[in-house]
């Protein structure tokens, strides 16, 4: 690796930083636009792709699985199996096929979201009030109309609960993925691990935590926006 010397001597811009200082603010401000901000943007991007891809696959699978028990069992089993793989091993396993690339990371991350998102979507579709379905059938809605117009919107709270957990999980797992492809907030973390200088590690760690908190709040906001009936007060 040609980048090795740069990792041994981390990018200092402020010389006043001591290696013993756990969080040297002048390093953070000096490296914000060159190191931290790009990594943060990348991390958001990685997370967004994984969660959206996972959601699209899971929703399609759940809608398909709703009236096909064999598929629900099969896809549920597959997503459980994927979830049990150790994450680092899973990322590395794809390197021979897709190389050291964003694709490799996304395959891994997306796979990890499937169990949460699929299970929650399917449970949501199945736990709709029985009398609403009976009324819908009696009124002359077709099974497809009942699925898309009644069951799907009523599953949104459950789906969004899955999205919440999946998003936070992906944010944390994506840092591990940097061990395979140097992208996102994982990269400064892995860079810093090899040095005596703590600020880069601590600052990136805090940034990751903040990102997870903000992302969680954003998902809650989306849930709020898509489920107006839940906040209608009596």
């Amino acid at each position: 690796m040609t980048g090795l010397p740069a990792q041994v001597i981390p990018v200092f811009s402020g010389t006043e930083c001591s290696p013993d200082d756990p969080l040297c603010w002048s390093w953070v401000t000096g490296n914000w636009s060159s190191v931290l901000a790009p990594a943060l943007v990348q991390h958001v991007y990685i997370t967004l792709i994984a969660v959206v891809a996972g959601l699209v696959i899971s929703l399609a699978a759940a809608l398909f699985a709703f009236s096909r028990d064999w598929f629900a069992t099969g896809f549920g089993g597959l997503s459980t199996l994927l979830y049990t793989f150790p994450s680092l091993a899973f990322f590395i396993a794809f390197v021979p096929i897709t190389g050291i690339s964003l694709t490799t990371i996304e395959i891994g991350l997306t796979s990890y979201t499937l169990l949460l998102l699929f299970r929650n979507a399917l449970t949501g579709l199945r736990t709709v009030p029985r009398n609403a379905i009976e009324a819908a059938e009696g009124m002359g809605l077709t099974p497809a109309q009942i699925l898309f117009r009644i069951r799907f919107p009523l599953a949104l709270p459950s789906i969004m609960a899955g999205v919440r957990v999946a998003t936070v999980t992906v944010i944390s797992l994506a840092t591990v993925a940097a061990a395979v492809a140097p992208l996102g907030l994982g990269k400064p973390i892995f860079d810093a691990i090899h040095t005596l200088f703590d600020t880069e590690l601590v600052a990136t760690g805090i940034l990751t935590i903040l990102l997870a908190l903000v992302a969680d709040a954003v998902v809650l906001g989306i849930r709020w926006a898509v489920t107006p009936w839940l906040r209608a007060a009596r």
């Binding site: 009398n131 609403a132 009976e134 009324a135 819908a136 009696g138 009124m139 009523l154 949104l156 009936w229």
Partner: peptide
């Protein structure tokens, strides 16, 4: 069609 539990769609 009218049923005892009404069966209104809660999200609408």
């Amino acid at each position: 069609y009218v049923i005892q539990q009404v069966g209104l769609f809660p999200h609408m």
